[in-house]
């Protein structure tokens, strides 16, 4: 289970998200208002829309297509039309880089 260098810390604005593609998988990397980094699957569990185009509000990400809501720290689905939780991945920060533990 390798740690993979995903992006620079500065690539993600505070309270925002970016898309990160790695080995045929797409992920979303979040930076919270507390300057913590989180990573989830990149596509909404409802209809496979890229969450990186959504809106981050505090600890939640809203899907850009149907406004479904997830807690990006836990992946928990919070509001219809999403019912299925997002998969989350462990992250760590070092030397100005964000690393993700992909499986």
């Amino acid at each position: 289970m390798p740690w993979v260098d995903a992006c620079a810390v500065d690539d993600v604005e505070e309270e925002d998200v970016i898309r990160w593609d790695h080995e045929d998988q797409t992920y979303a990397i979040f930076r919270s208002v507390d300057d913590e980094f989180y990573c989830t699957d990149g596509l909404c569990t409802h209809e496979q829309v890229h969450l990186s185009e959504g809106l981050v509000m505090e600890n939640e990400i809203e899907c850009p297509k149907h406004n479904g809501l997830f807690d990006y720290r836990t992946g928990k689905a919070l509001r219809a039309p999403v019912c299925e939780d997002l998969r989350t991945y462990e992250t760590r920060v070092g030397n100005g880089r964000v690393m993700v533990l992909v499986e």
Binding site: H46, E47, K65, H66, A80, P81
Partner: peptide, 9 residues
């Protein structure tokens, strides 16, 4: 709520 989600999809 669901029919409108489909309308947007």
């Amino acid at each position: 709520r669901w029919s409108h989600a489909r309308h947007h999809t």
